[in-house]
Design a binder for these strands. Structure first.
Length: 729
RNA sequence: GGGUUGCUAGCUCAAUUGGCAGAGCAGGGGACUCUUAAUCCCAAGGUUCCGGGUUCGAGUCCCGGGCGGCCCA
């Protein structure tokens, strides 16, 4: 819950009664948050200690137990309550005659309180095992009511955001958590029994590799370098195999900067294992042994229910070649796959390779129907850049997926050990480079050149396996704290500082600041001495400094006001936002001779990769005109998602005399936005200057095209050229 | 990113064609010595996620926004 005044005010009603009880306890000198309470027994252990207790009987066993009060049933001078600790739940029986004066103290108790209680174990007349209270203490006073006792906490969002309430109210949540713990513990032990060594390898990696996935980026200040959160530990574990660690594994988190779904969380837990003198067939055997025995250990059976089906995890699992599965789906791998795709309703690009088409048909038509555990063998070479070529069919690699319940749960390779082949594959990927491509990891290649033995490797998605074991349809049910957007009104933390570090690690920001602070001659000298670190950017900064130095502040301002397209003035572009359009625009504008400043809002967690920006202003106060430095030569493009920061920057800049103020909006949102501005009290003239939606109407689609339309509009304004067709009115 | 769907008291849910926002549990007061979803009586509890609009009148219809669920990409 937020601590915002309004919400605590609203909460006051239902909290007041409990606060009053707390106050009266404390007024009576009682500590409502005790430091300790010695327990003699765990609740769950009590029943077996009094096996023969008859209804109405009292045992010799006296216990001191502690737990959370879960229910409270008053019956005049007799009170029943339920007390639960991590091991179980038991009834408390409070009788006026046994408790004496302390009986009145029951009024201070609320459901949800942590309570210590002591007395003999009895069985009530109705047969319920109970502790007959001789005394009790409030250990911790609960100040908020628990969710409803019968229905529990059902709201999915509430269950994820307040998992502690889910754990208190819903036994299922505890079951899943415990299953996860025991399955992971089982897998660790199982592998160690087979002589696998558990290791930990870097999560912060200078080069991300081992999987085709978009990484999270972060920045190390002391080392002045960008780092990636790992998408996989693969390349480090393989280094260990080179080092002679013949059987090695790691169970830990991977991070992938991709969407969330019922099967995807940005951070997830992965087992990777490598075994020297083994191939992917051996890894398949290892996987099916591990999966079946973990199911037996966790669920008590190798046949587990999943979403209305029974999954039979008894080994051996079905093995099927991918090409054969595609054939079964009705396509002819030797014929015209594009035509087959069209017939099967699989959308494809006709330029795709044979292997890509095969994979597409498999993923769209086969995978989700593979309910029972299946090893899908031999991926086409074009789509499996990390596995070694198949020993008998060069079209394929020795790469298999383990599919359970239509989900990719595991993967295994005969690992590529040839450093030359590996280099070629890395470089081939750079050629058709995209977000997911690997950089060439020279250090890893060097390790391979020392020689890696024949090796099999596997990856195993712990979260998805837990979904199978606990019959959960969503990965969020097996991750205690799944990724969620912050609730409305909760301000995300400020973005970390991420100076404009370029690939070579030179601190351009520092250099530019130094240049601006010094006289132009020194700046020129620096540029001359260090041409390789971005001479054009530095030169413009020098020109800028020279220009500013030549004028008094007042004179400079008036000179700039004279004409925005005065050839003597370097045009400034202030880009608000750090998305794809913003970065494309920054690059284009930088090359077009603009001095580019980027204002990163609070949603920008990493701006380290902002090439094209001459300056990055990290999370300025949106009302801070000084930080934004708008002037008569500053063109402003607000390209962020609509958010509070962008909104406030817009309102700040509307009061200035910038020559261009554009706002990127979703289609059809402009009218509403103009209306809102009108309500905020801006004049019609001020509003008319705002270009919404931003950019010339070029029917732009991609971020790059949108950036072009924005820059084109800015140029047209600067040169006094065509009237923008997207100007309102 | 697109589609769809949800958001009403602390919790679980109602509210008919647009017509006085209700109940159960929890919480407050009272009765009760064998209850266990206790029961009975009384009283209280609301920014219907937020902002606009239509209307005599909006929880309900329309537009925009926020945060979720599901499906698709």
């Amino acid at each position: 819950m937020s601590d915002a005044p309004e919400s605590s005010e609203r909460a006051a009603d239902h909290l007041k009664a409990r606060r009053d009880k707390l106050d009266s306890l404390q007024a009576a000198g009682e500590d409502a948050f005790k430091v300790m309470f010695e327990r003699s027994h765990l609740i769950g252990n009590i029943p077996e200690l009094v096996p023969d207790l008859e209804p109405g009987g009292e045992s010799d066993l006296k216990v001191r137990i502690g737990g959370r009060l879960m229910a409270f049933r008053r019956q005049g001078k007799l009170v029943f309550a339920d007390l639960a600790d991590a091991s179980g739940k038991i009834q408390l029986l409070a009788q006026a005659n046994r408790l004496g004066d302390r009986f009145a103290g029951l009024d201070d108790l609320d459901i949800g309180d942590w309570v210590g209680a002591w007395g003999p174990v009895i069985r009530t007349k109705r047969g319920e095992l109970s502790v007959a209270l001789e005394g009790f203490d409030i250990l911790t006073k609960g100040l908020r009511p628990l969710p409803e006792k019968w229905h529990g906490l059902k709201d999915v969002e509430g269950r994820y955001r307040q998992r502690y309430l889910d754990l208190i109210a819903n036994p299922e949540a505890r079951t899943v958590m415990m299953a996860r713990s025991s399955a992971i513990a089982f897998i660790r032990t199982w592998l160690q029994e087979r002589r696998f060594i558990e290791v930990e390898t870097p999560m912060l990696q200078p080069i991300h590799g081992g999987a085709l996935a978009k990484p999270f980026t972060t920045y190390h200040e002391a080392l002045n370098m960008n780092l990636f959160l790992r998408v996989a530990p693969e390349l480090y574990l393989k280094r260990l195999v080179v080092g002679g660690v013949e059987r090695v594994f790691e169970v830990n988190r991977n991070f992938r900067n991709e969407g969330v779904s019922v099967r995807h969380n940005p951070e997830f837990t992965m087992l990777e294992a490598y075994q020297a003198f083994a191939d992917y067939n051996d890894m398949a055997t290892l996987l099916e042994g591990m999966v079946s025995e973990a199911a037996q250990a966790t669920c008590g059976s190798m046949k587990v229910p999943y979403q209305g089906e029974i999954l039979d995890l008894t080994p051996p699992f079905r093995r099927a070649r991918l090409i054969d599965l595609v054939r079964e789906a009705g396509a002819d791998p030797d014929g015209d796959l594009v035509a087959d795709c069209r017939r099967l309703g699989v959308k494809v690009d006709p330029n795709w390779s044979w292997g890509k088409l095969l994979l597409e048909i498999y993923e769209k038509k086969v995978e989700r129907n593979l309910l029972q555990p299946t090893f899908v063998m031999d991926y086409p070479k074009e789509v499996s850049p990390l596995a070694r070529s198949h020993r008998s069919d060069p079209r394929f690699t020795e790469h298999l997926d383990l599919v359970i319940a239509g989900m990719e749960v595991g993967v295994a390779y005969s690992e590529l050990t040839d450093p030359i082949d590996q280099r070629n594959r890395f470089e081939a990927q750079i050629d058709d480079s995209d977000d997911e491509a690997h950089a060439v990891d020279e250090d890893f290649l060097k390790a391979l050149e020392y020689g890696m033995p024949p090796t099999g490797g596997l990856g195993f998605g712990i979260d998805r396996f837990l979904m199978v074991l606990t019959d959960q349809a969503s990965i969020r049910e097996v991750i205690l704290f799944p990724a969620l957007r912050p609730e409305e009104g909760v301000t995300p933390p400020a973005a970390p500082k991420a100076p404009g570090v370029k690939e070579n690690g030179t601190d351009l920001d520092g250099l530019k600041a130094a240049i601006k602070a010094s006289i132009p001659e020194i700046a020129e000298a620096v540029v001359a001495a260090m041409p390789e670190i971005g001479a054009s950017a530095a030169r413009r900064a020098a020109d800028d400094a020279a220009h500013r130095a030549a004028e008094t502040p007042t004179a400079a301002r008036s000179a700039e006001r004279r004409a925005p397209h005065d050839p003597g003035v370097i045009p400034q572009l202030l880009v608000v936002g750090t998305g794809k359009v913003a970065s494309s625009l920054a690059r284009l504008a930088e090359r077009s001779g603009f001095h580019v400043r980027v204002a990163a809002g609070p949603d920008a967690y990493s701006v380290g990769e902002f090439e094209g920006a001459d300056e990055v202003i990290v999370t300025p106060e949106p009302q801070d005109v000084e930080a934004l430095r708008p002037d008569a030569s500053t063109y402003v493009a607000i390209c962020s998602e609509v958010n509070e920061f962008a909104e406030e920057v817009l309102q700040t800049l509307m009061a200035t005399d910038v020559p261009y103020l554009g706002v990127m909006l979703k289609k059809g949102k402009a009218a509403g936005a103009f209306k809102r501005l009108g309500k905020l009290g801006f004049s019609e003239a001020q509003i008319a200057r705002v270009r919404m939606p931003i950019g010339l109407a070029l029917r732009s689609q991609s971020p790059e095209e949108i950036a072009i339309s924005i820059l084109a509009e800015i140029v047209s304004v600067r040169r006094g050229g065509l009237q923008s067709s997207s100007t309102p009115g």
